[in-house]
Nucleic acid binder design. Structure first.
Length: 462
RNA sequence: GGCCCCGUCGUCUAGCGGUCAGGAUCCCAGGUUUUCAUCCUGGUUACAGGAGUUCGAUUCUCCUCGGGGUCACCA
């Protein structure tokens, strides 16, 4: 069984980069009928893990990504980690190191001065004398000091590290007894049954350390996939400073979950030339072997395109529900269909769409001066008066086509081009030169409001 | 600085020894539309550089350059 996991450290919210690795992990688990687990890496007790977990779960929920089973909190697993620390100590695979912080700093400084790599010198590795007074020892693992550690990575291939280059006896438990990251990650992944670790490639250089832990404990090493970073415009790792990295901010901006997920799945991963993926297709097609090796630059142009694509292709019923989050209650609006049909091809975001709806429903406060100047030339006044009279006289006006017929009548009668009625009417109804089809607009606001807006405009330009 | 990763249009990418180097987005032009948007059609733009290997390299090897990541009693 394929078991994947997403293991964020609780920095507050779910960001784009994290979401992408979570998505990859989720898809791979679902595709294989496996499990997708969530673990909160909150060994840093100063932070509020509960809130962070809730923010992440909330974002997952919005996106429709559900994790399996209970959430694992590292902060609640000290007892478990203690067992493995003791085991390593008992087996002589780890030891207490009584070096003080000051001594360590001094050592590092000296090494740096000599242009050597800063590393622990192993002075307590074989120590069995009397420990110095007043030192709370850290616990270090006996790491191999020579030879190679090979990470068999599904994205990067086999990455070879020389032990002497990168390893030393690193700390697995602090002076206060709390375990450190590289130690608990290995234990948790093993205990949770994780078979494939899909994570950012900033973790690649951590991996040899984790492999040391796996091997010391006799655990089998999972399959790794280190996915390249997402960079900002400057080519640097994406961070909170780069604008909207909070996933929920995309909801506020009016992006649909579908668009965001589709955008992210294609960032660093591809399936031939395919650009549009439904959730089902993602689960069907996703395979980490097609993850790109190089970092990608984050750019929202395609996201916008995808968003408008999905808005266009979302059924009205569903669209009306989505729009509720933007303060638009359309579910029982009698002209909902016409309204949504008229606007879904025009909006890039749901937020924008809500705004466009209001621009139709609510009469313009004032008419744009330039538009008035341009549109109300020649016999515009007569045209509008004629049209208003026809609207007044008609009994049944419901569909856009009903209004369209009236416009056609005026055009024929007065022997003018369509633009001669379209432009002034548009300005009268919407206050500006652009917007959706006028026949739809009129069908939406209805007969009385149409007449009222035309008359009001006529009065204003008198 | 040590170690590691990466390098195809501006951006996301396809390519896996022989292609007019393909698609998407963006941008531009034309068409459709009373307008704007959508939509349709067309167009501009890329193999970082240099050595090899080979009949032939974007593809394989090495070097250079460039970018990124990581080097904690943080995660």
């Amino acid at each position: 069984m394929v078991v994947t996991r997403f293991a964020p450290s609780p920095t507050g919210y779910l960001h784009i980069g994290g979401l992408r690795t979570a998505l990859f992990s989720y898809l791979w688990a679902r595709k294989n009928g496996g499990k997708f687990l969530l673990r909160i890496e909150d060994t840093d007790k100063a932070r509020n893990s509960q809130e962070a977990a809730e923010a992440i779960v909330k974002a997952f929920h919005w996106l429709g990504l559900e994790h399996d089973g209970e959430i694992t909190y590292q902060s609640q697993r000290d007892d478990i980690y203690a067992i493995y620390i003791k085991r390593l100590l008992d087996e002589g695979k780890a030891y207490r190191c009584y070096m003080s912080k000051e001594e360590l700093d001094a050592l590092r400084e000296e090494q740096t001065a000599n242009k050597e790599r800063a590393k622990y010198d192993g002075r307590y590795r074989e120590f069995n004398g009397t420990p110095p007074e007043g030192i709370e020892p850290v616990i270090r693992i006996k790491a191999p000091l020579s030879g190679e550690i090979v990470v068999h990575d599904g994205v990067k291939g086999d990455v070879v590290f020389k032990a002497e280059d990168i390893l030393d006896d690193f700390v697995i438990a602090r002076g206060d007894g709390s375990p450190t990251y590289n130690f608990v990650v290995a234990i948790d992944d093993h205990l949770m049954g994780v078979t494939e670790v899909i994570r950012g490639d900033d973790h690649l250089s951590n991996t040899p350390k984790q492999i040391v832990v796996y091997e010391a404990l006799g655990f089998s090493v999972p399959k790794f996939y280190h996915v390249p970073m997402i960079h900002n415009h400057e080519g640097k790792k994406l961070s909170k400073r780069d604008g909207a990295t909070d996933v929920m901010a995309y909801k506020e901006m009016g992006y649909t979950p579908q668009a965001l997920l589709n955008f992210l799945v294609r960032l660093g991963w591809s399936n031939g030339d395919q650009e549009i993926f439904s959730m089902e297709e993602m689960m069907e097609c996703f395979n980490p072997k097609n993850i790109n090796r190089s970092a990608s630059i984050y750019n929202t142009e395609k996201l916008e395109w995808l968003n408008s694509h999905y808005i266009k292709n979302t059924p009205n019923e569903e669209l009306a529900e989505l729009l509720e989050a933007y303060g638009l209650l359309l579910t029982s609006h009698d002209k909902k269909e016409i309204l949504l049909d008229a606007l879904k091809e025009r909006a890039k975001t749901l937020k924008e769409m809500a705004q466009l709806v209001n621009e139709i429903i609510i009469a313009p406060e004032s008419l744009d001066e330039k538009a008035v100047e341009k549109a109300f030339k020649g016999d515009a006044r007569e045209v509008l008066e004629n049209f208003a009279a026809k609207v007044s006289a008609a009994d049944e006006l419901h569909l856009p086509s009903d209004y369209h017929h009236l416009m056609e009548e005026v055009v024929k009668e007065m022997n003018i081009g369509f633009g001669k009625i379209g432009q002034p009417l548009r300005v009268a109804l919407l206050g500006k030169m652009s917007g959706p089809g006028l026949d739809s607009v009129m069908a939406i606001i209805g007969k009385d409001e149409t007449i009222a807006r035309v008359k009001s405009a006529l009065a204003q330009i008198a």
